[in-house]
Design a protein around this nucleic acid. Structure first.
Lengths: 215, 215
DNA sequence: CAATTTCCTGACCACTTAGTCACTTTTTAC
DNA sequence: GTAAAAAGTGACTAAGTGGTCAGGAAATTG
């Protein structure tokens, strides 16, 4: 939730946060082209010109908001080493990602839209930090496999599948709500997490840790 | 690929198809608001007014295209009964859905965008055919579980996870391509399918059928 | 208190957009 | 062949868009 620019002018800082929050809500609901600066202004309860004062353009605001969002992707899994336990590390990672889907569904949707449209503003990020992160995690998973601590699976696809399932609960909430006949509450997310942890870990030949076991 | 209106005027039918194909391409790339009727006209190599002649409005064209797309979701899994083999039925379903992701990525992206934005044009579909389909499939999965033919999992979440993973390969292709450094070819989809079948089936306590086993 | 920087905004503009309309051309039907 | 229906289209309109700008208010600093 932090932005790197001038935290000095406390008035400006506060307004920027208010604008970023309004932008997240609006962009998540209507997409980049579908959202007008006026809508964001209404949501933030500020005149339109004020938005353009803090962020030089609609695109500038969008990019600033995207950077904010990307920081949510950090998790305990970033620090995992090959000494850690595969089952617990993966289960925790799944749980972390499920938590983000529950607490920041709008951010997840914006990210999804961005990637759907070819990730025009994320390609730079993808080909730098993201690739490096991926290589590191894949290496650790491969070590675990070499050591016989989990079933041989392709780590790349395994991570894709974890992302797909966890983000699905944020991105496709409309479909999920329709099919369930009710929205996903905290308890439902916990149950979904248990189901997913069981599925993925069993699929990797791992035993589900105590704390993710069913009641 | 069929639309219900006048298939008589072969000129009109052909043009409608050309327009629908152009619309699918454009909407998948730029979204509903991000696509102008003029862009679709250029793509279809027809004057803009001609588009509005066949489809009374941009929204009308969009809805017609959505209906076209929904028919792609049919699969062999629709006809599965409790007498069928769980492992083979699920594996085939996963493979079918992966095939659609490979052959119709644009359709998948449009569906994803629609759901992301709250599924305004699909809510009716969701609360009718889709719910019925879901209840039927859930019932069969529960029978398989009662009969001890697969691990007890919540069928609802299992289906969510299958959709999430299979559609991910179409919807998030930009991210996948960036991280792999190359696009997914036919062989890559086949490998992803094998990986996913293994993950899901193992997660359900099922044995992977011969035809989806690794080389 | 004065000066300077930050903050704020109404009026306005250039441009794009979906959709209409009057009209012509082509195809079909008898 | 001719009438009627379908197909096709250029010119236009009304509404909404992102963004500019000139000028003023408020806060900060010395």
């Amino acid at each position: 939730m932090a932005s790197k620019s001038k935290m000095d002018g406390s008035i400006g800082a506060k307004n920027k946060q208010k604008i970023l929050a309004a932008a997240e809500k609006a962009f998540a609901t209507y997409g980049f082209k579908g959202t007008s600066v006026q809508q964001i202004a209404d949501e933030a309860e500020l005149p339109k010109t004020n938005i353009l004062y803090y962020f030089k353009s609609k695109q500038g605001l969008y990019v600033a908001m995207l950077q904010d969002i990307m920081s949510l992707w950090n998790s305990r899994f970033d620090q995992v080493t090959e000494e850690d336990d595969p089952a617990e590390s993966l289960a925790d990672y799944i749980a972390d990602k499920m938590t983000v889907s529950r607490t920041h569904p709008q951010a997840s949707k914006i990210f999804a839209m961005e990637v759907l449209n070819g990730a025009p503003y994320l390609n730079k990020f993808f080909s730098n930090e993201h690739v490096a992160w991926m290589e590191g995690r894949v290496a650790i998973l491969n070590r675990w496999i070499e050591q016989g601590r989990m079933t041989p699976v392709d780590p790349l696809y395994l991570l894709f599948h974890i992302w797909a399932c966890t983000q699905h609960y944020a991105d496709f909430s409309a479909q999920i709500t329709s099919l369930r006949g009710k929205t996903m509450k905290r308890a439902d997310f916990d149950e979904a997490t248990r189901q997913l942890v069981q599925l993925i870990l069993s699929g990797c030949g791992l035993t589900v840790p105590e704390k993710y076991a069913e009641l």
